[in-house]
């Protein structure tokens, strides 16, 4: 078993090294199209609630997509600048991702709170269960088990 333990250790090391290597390398530079796609994916289509400009085929989404493409190929603005430009130009709430400020931050905070709360529930359940172990079997119980086991071996 000793050897197996060390094999496990080696395996964990190998996986960690490979993951670090894989996580740090990239798939080449981002193309303009990648930038357009990732920007339009966080912009809400104004006429179809819940869908992004990237997903929607509606005319309103089409024109925002064209504007983003123009901005990206001009290459003068950063991603944030393009997003705020779109917000200014088309007006209203254009982002599909809720902000992490004000009341909107609740949508990010509540899931974490739910996870922490349910882990706490699990933890307290296990502590409770650990507290009330079932009683040890009486001799009567053991007799019942022995009888049952006997009949079982008779069958075989």
């Amino acid at each position: 078993m000793k050897t197996r333990k060390s094999v496990w250790l080696a395996m964990f090391l190998l996986v960690a090294v490979l993951l670090v290597f894989g996580a740090t390398r990239t798939g080449g530079p981002q193309t303009q199209q990648d930038r357009i796609d990732s920007l339009t994916a966080v912009l809400a289509c104004p006429t179809c609630s819940g869908e992004s400009v990237f997903v929607s085929r509606a005319a309103a989404a089409e024109s925002i997509r064209a504007e983003v493409a123009r901005q990206v190929s001009a290459g003068l603005r950063t991603d944030e600048q393009i997003l705020s430009y779109i917000e200014q130009r088309f007006g209203g709430e254009v982002l599909l991702v809720p902000r992490a400020t004000g009341v909107d931050a609740l949508v990010w905070a509540l899931p974490v709170a739910a996870l922490v709360f349910s882990i706490f529930l699990l933890y307290s359940a296990f502590t409770k269960w650990r507290g009330n172990k079932p009683e040890s079997p009486t001799s009567q119980d053991e007799q019942i088990v022995a009888r049952a086991l006997n009949t079982k071996s008779d069958e075989q």
Binding site: A41, A44, L95, L96, V107
Partner: peptide
């Protein structure tokens, strides 16, 4: 919820 609380339109979509 946001509309009820603050009478403001927001969108929660795929990125979230």
């Amino acid at each position: 919820i946001i509309e009820a609380l603050q009478n403001r339109q927001i969108a929660v979509g795929a990125p979230f």
